[in-house]
């Protein structure tokens, strides 16, 4: 695919092209926090930031999502029969998404879409209608550890276009046919531009200081890790809150509930989390993950052992560091995984 140049003074024209028949979103500064919002011009979007506070997963997997509706009348010919919500009506572009977050979507693709039965159309529809334009990280922050979990500050996985900030311009790398269509008309990059991007990539990789080692986690059996003594310490301070899972780009557990209001009814899914006691509770009162330790362990085992075992070695973590930054009691995933690997 082609390597193009996007001059910084041509950004507005580029963005205008993007939002002509699509909804365009980008990271913006809101109340001192970096979050996603619709943008129309280049100066509305952020171009120099570490990452958004929360992951962009809710573009594809909203925290609350209506799946179906029904007429809440028994006896009516149409009553009580579930009708799926319509699909997304406009395609979307996510601009300046970080490579770690894009990689996370590809991990989630492996879970949401597996075969004819495990084929989450809600996820899939939004994925197929969304174009991802990534912005490479030249300055990873101290909590980033993407390179140690198979991602990269300049990673291209899951992206349609990768932008690399070269100072006065961006190197725009088309990665898919969708991406090619967006940047195909831009001027071609020179050899020097690509060399500079490669240098920045190397420099960015070098700035990732801490990380996780996975070799022993990979080679050990599930039960050896499960029974390891470390969990007794990890769980001690844990609050069993949902912060780590809700800010995580790969956490994807959910609950489905019905709601009614007079003759209207809907089936909604909401994010749920394995830290919650209620999550696995049986109707009989039996709870297979009845203790805090069980629940804390589940999160780490799921990401670093269960997903890799089941999904061809793919790790359920992209090293974005959000949980490290936001955990109210500083449970640091890097430390936990290194303890698993010890």
């Amino acid at each position: 695919m082609s390597q193009k140049i996007l001059a910084k003074n041509k950004l507005d024209a580029f963005l205008q092209g993007l939002c002509r028949d699509q909804d365009l979103f980008a990271p913006v500064m809101k109340d001192g926090k970096v979050g996603w919002a619709p943008v129309a011009t280049a100066d509305q979007a952020l171009w120099d930031f570490s990452n958004t506070e929360m992951s962009p997963k809710d573009f594809f997997f909203p925290q609350t999502e209506c799946m179906m509706r029904f007429k809440n009348v028994q006896g009516d010919p149409q009553g009580m029969i579930m009708q799926a919500e319509p699909a997304l009506n406009r395609p979307r572009v996510l601009l300046n998404i970080r490579p770690c977050d894009a990689k996370a979507f590809q991990v989630l693709d492996l879970i949401f879409v597996q075969d004819e039965m495990t084929n989450d159309l809600y996820w899939r529809d939004k994925r197929e209608k969304t174009t991802l334009i990534g912005l490479a990280c030249n300055d990873p922050c101290p909590t980033c550890f993407c390179t140690t979990v198979g991602s990269n500050p300049h990673g291209t996985t899951g992206l349609d276009v990768l932008l690399v900030d070269l100072g006065d311009k961006f190197l725009a790398q088309a990665l898919t046919a969708k991406g090619e269509a967006l940047v195909g008309d831009l001027p071609a990059a020179a050899g020097g531009d690509e060399a500079k991007a490669a240098e920045l990539k190397k420099a960015a990789e070098g700035k990732i200081s801490g990380g996780v080692a996975m070799d022993k986690v990979n080679s050990r059996e599930v039960m050896e890790l499960y029974d390891a003594p470390l969990w007794d310490r990890v769980m001690e301070s844990c609050l069993n809150c949902g912060t780590c899972t809700f800010c995580c780009p790969t956490c994807h557990c959910f609950d489905i509930q019905d709601e009614t209001q007079g003759q209207d009814g809907r089936r909604v899914r909401n994010w749920d989390y394995c830290m919650s006691w209620l999550f696995t509770m049986h109707g009989t009162g039996h709870n297979p993950r009845g203790t805090k330790k069980d629940r804390v362990r589940q999160r780490f085992m799921h990401k670093f052992k269960y997903i890799p075992v089941k999904r061809g070695g793919e790790i359920g973590c992209v090293g974005c560091g959000r949980c490290v930054r936001l955990c109210p009691v500083n449970i640091d995933v890097r430390q936990v995984v290194n303890d698993m690997n010890a």
Partner: peptide, 24 residues
């Protein structure tokens, strides 16, 4: 086995036992 299940198709995470989903 029996476990609490929701989606029934191996996504939502409730019935997860080790790497396996009881529902799928």
């Amino acid at each position: 086995l029996e476990n609490r299940m929701k989606c029934g198709i191996g996504i939502c995470g409730r019935c997860n036992v080790g790497p396996e989903y009881v529902c799928k």
